[in-house]
Design a protein around this nucleic acid. Structure first.
Lengths: 247, 247
DNA sequence: GAGTGGTCTAGACCACTCC
DNA sequence: GAGTGGTCTAGACCACTCA
């Protein structure tokens, strides 16, 4: 039941309790990405609070990109498969020097199973030796290779993933993981470094061995801050840059 | 006067009008960084709206790091000179591999006047040939050089800045610009690339010529999205990484 | 026209800070 | 105790969407 008094030592305001109830609905799959959730009035009745309190809960979740409000229509669960292009490439910060908008071309190279080593098990919070899936792929912009990615996924969550699925997938990888496996990426942490290209990477990216590359390690999280993806990307920044907003 | 009807073609809700009135107070210096602004009730009376409307305006500005609310005390203008360390290094994303928290050591090298060239005039939105000030400095972490910065400031705004001021400045550069010149940096855009170290930079950073470095160009903005700083930094990412949150 | 989210108000009570 | 921001409520009206 909802707590109504402020005297509790673990007090959290009503709207946060409502927020975590809505969050439960998202985690449990009661409302799936792209779908509408009940109206503010319905939720207010269901949870026995005022509409304003539900509104404040939803406000916060909309600010966190978990929900999307559409006036006159309803409130939707955010999805990487949204028609909106901004939502689709929300996690890709690479921009061309030319300024032209370029849609990346996705070229999956390999996809195989393996067992989690020290690092993968620590980062993905799975057992040492647990099954994982490794994907290697190339991203091209304007027909030129710009990014090599190596992606580690926990095998138990993303069991049936194959190279064919990746090749046939129109949208982004996250869109695929969301619609096929019901796992939505909420946020990610990236660690950036400058490194020198090894021979293999240089060949794939069409640069000289030893050329400077941007190395980006990313850990992505789904609901409840559960890590579900670890990837390392090598970016050729000859004709592109990584754009970041500080605020 | 405030507009009360929705029929206007340039309609914006009341709380946004209040927001921009408060913003004017910040821009004009009526309330300076670190000071308290009037209470929600006072502002509500002054602007002839309800307290809830003022609250919503302040909510947005607090979310944008323009204001800081402190329960029981009041609402403060955000400042780079806050005691809070997070606020002080809000724009520095560099983290040590070791995980230990390191306070950077600031070593100003040079500070001279010049005239804006093509690029500086375009980026800082000033006239070609207008006076600018150029600063070069080194950042050390744990006694080791990690960052070289070259900083371009419009000369008319930051007229009296000297190498001595930079050397005597305890906190961050932005804290100095704020307290000495009344210009507060609100947000910034960074463009990241991997490049090869030239001879001079390599010597300063203690790496080999040609070693990969992280190049970061930053444009910082004050109120009303006015650009007031352009800088280029070269980061040695041997023992540090650039941390970014995507979400 | 019915239903949705968006804005605005007024009033109550709570928690925190400082005197 | 007075003053501040924080929470919660109830109700009114508006703008947008869709049938």
């Amino acid at each position: 039941m909802l707590q109504g008094t402020h005297s509790s030592p673990t007090f959290s305001p009503l709207y946060r309790q409502i927020k975590s109830l809505i969050l439960q609905g998202l985690e449990s799959g009661e409302w799936r990405p792209g779908e509408v959730i009940p109206s503010e009035n319905e939720l207010a009745v269901r949870f026995s609070v005022s509409q304003g309190t539900v509104r404040k809960a939803i406000d916060e979740m909309a600010a966190e990109n978990l929900l999307i409000r559409r006036q006159g229509k309803g409130t939707y669960v955010a999805s990487h498969n949204d028609a909106d292009q901004h939502e689709k490439f929300r996690f890709l910060r690479l921009m061309p020097d030319s300024g032209n908008v370029e849609t990346p071309e996705n070229l999956p190279l390999e996809c195989w199973r393996a067992k989690a080593g020290q690092e993968a098990s620590r980062i993905l919070e799975i057992k040492l030796g647990a099954p994982i899936t490794i994907i290697r792929r190339l991203l091209k912009f304007a027909a030129k290779p710009v990014v090599i990615d190596e992606i580690y996924l926990p095998g138990e969550i993303f069991a049936g993933i194959t190279l064919e699925m990746l090749q046939n997938c129109q949208g982004s990888l996250y869109g695929l993981l969301e619609s096929q496996f019901g796992v939505r990426m909420i946020r990610a942490e990236e660690r950036l470094r400058a490194i020198a290209a090894d021979r293999a990477s240089a060949a794939l990216l069409g640069v000289a061995e030893g050329a400077p590359l941007l190395s980006i390690e990313r850990v992505s999280f789904t609901y409840a801050d559960r890590p579900v993806e670890w990837r390392r990307g090598l970016y050729s920044t000859a004709d592109h840059y990584y754009l970041n907003q500080l605020g």
